[in-house]
């Protein structure tokens, strides 16, 4: 494998890691506040459909992005009402919302465009899709050996949302570890009774966390439909919400580790697209389905605890009952 191919794969890795990273950070906020969310997948899917449809109908990818965030927030609100207000089973609520999203996105897209559940193609020229940004000096530094092409091919030339996702990593770290809100959020996921005793609203904090999850999943879904691809197709998220959950566990619910976990899973997805390269490197013909299954197999190995023990937030999944 030559340097050029490696750069191509790393470039694809970054593209494919972005939705995982946004969804993973989304799950991080929710789970750190004590609300399990296996509905990341559904929220991404709803956001993908809404953003692609609205971007096409209004001709503006920005309005589409807002619509995607809005759709994701609606699903987040239902999850919040079910699991915080009515203290329902958070896992079941997540599963239900995933099914709901899977069906309703196709119904709405079919009703709007009559293209079998797809949205019409979006394009950068018409302003309905995110274009690629060239970072400063990328052209000028291209000639520098080794690092120049790395900067030009891998780091530069992505859509804005990729850089937003990367910026979310230090931001999430700062919010969770250096702000009053973040401290309370983490506390409510470990010991809600103590937070309640201190006079801070458990319900309010948890709803805030679920709303942040909604916004980040909205970004992830909008990125899928308006940047990574040019439009919405049925089931286009293809289990990324679950891979993001796996990355979250792998990262032990920490933002910076989440970045590395998502890059790793994105790298596996990028490899699955290039079976020829894999074959050249390992010298054995590897079946494509095995490459497709690799992120899931790795997740199981991670979950099995062979790579360090992952301890979830202590109050995760348990509804809080005041004055028990």
């Amino acid at each position: 494998m030559d340097y050029g191919t490696l750069l191509q794969i790393l470039d694809t890795t970054l593209r494919l890691s972005t939705p995982l990273l946004l969804a993973c950070l989304a799950g991080l906020f929710s789970e750190r506040s004590g609300i399990f969310d296996i509905g990341l997948e559904g929220k991404m899917l709803a956001a993908a459909m809404a953003s692609a449809s609205v971007a096409f109908l209004t001709g503006s990818v920005w309005v589409g992005l807002l619509a995607g965030i809005g759709a994701s927030l609606i699903f987040a609100a239902i999850h919040g009402i079910a699991s915080i207000t009515f203290r329902g089973n958070q896992l079941i609520s997540g599963v239900a919302l995933n099914f709901l999203a899977s069906g309703i996105t196709v119904l709405i897209a079919t009703a709007l465009f009559a293209q079998g559940g797809r949205t019409p193609p979006l394009s950068v020229e018409e302003g309905t899709r995110f274009g690629e940004l060239t970072l400063p000096f990328a052209e000028a530094l291209r000639g520098v050996p080794v690092l120049g092409p790395l900067y030009y091919e891998v780091i530069s030339g992505h859509s804005l949302l990729v850089y937003v996702a990367l910026a979310m990593v230090p931001l999430s770290w700062w919010v969770l570890n250096r702000t009053r809100f973040g401290l309370r959020l983490r506390a409510v996921g470990e010991n809600p009774a103590a937070v309640d005793t201190a006079g801070v609203s458990v319900v309010g904090l948890r709803f805030a966390a679920v709303a942040i999850t909604g916004v980040l999943c909205g970004l992830a879904g909008a990125y899928m439909a308006t940047a990574l691809q040019a439009g919405f197709g049925r089931e286009m998220t293809a289990g990324r919400g679950y891979i993001a959950l796996a990355a979250l566990i792998f990262a032990k619910w920490r933002p910076v580790a989440a970045l590395w976990a998502c890059l790793l899973f994105g790298f596996f997805q990028a490899l699955a697209l290039r079976p020829d390269v894999v074959e050249a490197v390992v010298q054995v013909k590897v079946p494509v389905p095995l490459l497709d299954a690799l992120p899931y197999i790795l997740t199981v190995i991670v979950l099995a605890g062979f790579i360090g023990k992952a301890i979830p937030p202590r109050a995760g999944g348990e509804p809080y009952v005041k004055e028990r």
Partner: peptide, 24 residues
């Protein structure tokens, strides 16, 4: 000509109401 995905919507709603919003 209603897409068969309507069934998945109903399925999701049944799970939501019988499983998660049971308390409501």
């Amino acid at each position: 000509q209603i897409p068969p995905e309507m069934r998945i919507v109903v399925q999701g709603l049944v799970i939501l109401f019988t499983g998660a919003l049971d308390m409501m």
